[in-house]
Amino acid sequence: MARRDPAAFAEFVAARSAALHRSAYLMVGDAQLAQDLLQEALTKTYVAWPRLRDPANAEAYTRKAITTTAITWFRRKSWLGERPTEHVPDAGRAGHEDEVTRHDWLWTALQELPPRQRAAIVLRFYEDLTEAQTADAMGCAVGTVKSQVHAGLRTLRGLLGEHGVDGDLLPAELFPADLKVVTP
């Protein structure tokens, strides 16, 4: 059995914490909260360290800890109620969005998705994980990943459509075949 080596763990943290922090941030939408989430996930990783054996396993384990912890914290702490209210662009500006405005709308919509949908989208399209890898990170079945991604993208697409925002959510090659894109 591998030993719990603080030096090796510290090396892993130094190498991968920035990337993991970014993923955590996309899941929770708040930099400080993301740091707290990462610290919790890394603590779980340290506890699990002897069985992870190599850095690739450690990163996957930490990503899974971030995901499942984010979902759990969200449910327990009602983050929607505790998080600072972000500025939501005025709907009256919808006719002349520039890129910043579109990003604001989309960011707000992404953060308002249910946590499992948001996590599935971040893992699939930011982390570029396969459906199977996403399922492993979320601790669910591949079919659940598909349905969560599908529901999330449908919500986002619908919201952008409501505000007349043009543009594709995803590269065409990544867009689920069964998700119809409706241009208003």
């Binding site: 719990r4 603080p6 763990f9 510290a10 943290v13 914490s17 920035a18 922090h21 970014r22 993923s23 941030y25 996309l26 930099a31 993301a34 740091q35 990462l38 610290q39 890394l42 603590t43 340290y46 506890v47 579109r102 990003h103 989309l106 960011w107 992404l110 989208i121 971040v122 399209f125 930011y126 986002l156 952008l160 925002v165 543009g167 594709d168 959510l169 995803l170 590269p171 990544l174 867009f175």
Partner: peptide, 28 residues
């Protein structure tokens, strides 16, 4: 796509996390 651009843009603005490895190890 917009979603990819958004996530990368937002993530890229994030500073490095301020982590205390000694605290993590102690808690672990």
């Amino acid at each position: 796509g917009l979603l990819n651009d958004l996530m990368h843009d937002r993530a890229d603005t994030l500073g490095a996390p301020d982590l205390d490895v000694a605290t993590i190890v102690r808690e672990g």
